[in-house]
């Protein structure tokens, strides 16, 4: 039974009464499970250092979540596992050769500044893991763009002194070339890139799991990936549109972003039409940055930019109330002075 904890009374609400066993914890647990395949591929591709970074990132996210709540006398929220998800996603957004203190700084920024200072879970405007990634990227851009080759032997804990680096697929695509790219390697994650972003197949498997468990709806990923696919099909930089489209879809952090970051409940629209708009917006900005921007990859900036518009999108995409004409509210506001009255007379 639903109990009001402060007064020890049952909560009485009006119908409909829908029962559900979902909780924040169960949903976050599902997300963690869905991230496992990508983690396994990441560790397989980049070695045990990838696992060390992930563990540090998750640990420090949980620590800062606990520590901040203690500092401001709030209930300890780490049992809901949302900080653990943030930790995994943050680690997935790091290159494997970064020094080990970097995920700690990222976790501090993600949890304390982006999440808790805005009020904690459900109240943050920006996706914490992505904002932290961008913070680290702008703060230490050379470490954040040092891409080691897959299977390079790296120390578990020590700083990486001289990494054997290679061009990522995104760098090659930025040049307007596709030479040296291998679709099979990009599907299975055997390319340079961040720990969790390289294998499209593992990420898609996680996405299918989330869809089956109904944790996410397909709207945002389909809109996002569809927009990127359409734009890259229509405007290939080289060769045939179809090839170019596949490379653009499988390269960089697109799959990770579209499936796991853009679908974050707190920072994406809750209206159905709004989710379509959000996805398309992410896709357009991603392609614009990839084609014309200074950076090779635009997924994190695209999602963060669209995060800022979520409130507006939700306002614009409010479903029509039963019995009202289309755009009744807008009509009331602009132009038609007596639209509201006319509605009432009908």
């Amino acid at each position: 039974m639903n109990l009001d904890k402060t007064r020890h009374l049952p909560v009485v609400t009006s119908s409909p009464h829908v029962r559900s066993t979902d909780s924040v914890r169960s949903i976050m647990l599902d997300v963690l499970i869905s991230l496992l395949p990508a983690l396994l591929v990441g560790v397989f591709t980049f070695g045990p250092r990838a696992l060390v970074l992930t563990v540090i990132s998750v640990g420090s996210c949980l620590f800062f979540e606990w520590g901040f709540s203690r500092l401001v006398h709030k209930k300890n929220p780490i049992g809901d596992l949302s900080a653990a998800v943030t930790g995994v996603l943050l680690a997935f957004n790091l290159p494997v050769a970064v020094p080990l203190w970097m995920p700690v700084v990222g976790a501090l920024f993600a949890i304390v500044i982006v999440k808790q200072l805005y009020g904690g879970i459900g109240k943050n405007i920006f996706n914490p893991a992505l904002a932290a990634r961008v913070f680290l990227f702008l703060a230490w851009s050379s470490a954040m763009t040092t891409w080691t080759l897959p299977r390079a032997v790296l120390p578990w804990f020590a700083n990486v002194a001289d990494a054997v680096t290679g061009a990522t697929p995104m760098a090659i695509l930025k040049e307007g070339s596709t030479s040296g790219l291998d679709l099979m390697a990009m599907l299975t994650g055997q390319t340079g890139g961040c720990i969790g972003e390289t294998s499209a197949l593992a990420l898609l498997a996680g996405g299918v799991y989330l869809l089956i468990r109904r944790v996410i709806t397909p709207r945002i990923p389909v809109a996002y990936l569809g927009t990127v696919a359409l734009l890259s099909l229509l405007f290939p930089k080289t060769g045939s549109g179809l090839d170019w489209m596949l490379y653009e879809l499988l390269g960089g952090g697109l799959m990770l972003g579209a499936i796991f970051m853009a679908t974050d409940y707190t920072t994406s629209p809750s209206t159905i039409r709004g989710q379509w708009i959000f996805g398309v917006g992410c896709g357009v900005i991603t392609i614009v940055i990839r084609y014309f921007g200074a950076y090779n990859e635009g997924v994190s900036f695209a999602i963060l930019l669209m995060n800022a518009f979520v409130w507006m999108i939700d306002m614009a995409a409010k479903p029509r109330r039963y019995g009202l004409r289309r755009f009744a509210r807008l009509r009331e506001k602009f132009g038609a002075k007596h639209a509201g009255e006319r509605e009432a007379q009908k």
Partner: peptide, 22 residues
């Protein structure tokens, strides 16, 4: 010491200002 370049860029200004005001 590896300085965090973001702190002398505009976002660092906003972050520091906001935290000190708080």
């Amino acid at each position: 010491f590896q300085p965090a370049a973001i702190m002398i860029m505009a976002p660092g200004g906003f972050l520091t200002l906001g935290l000190i005001i708080a």
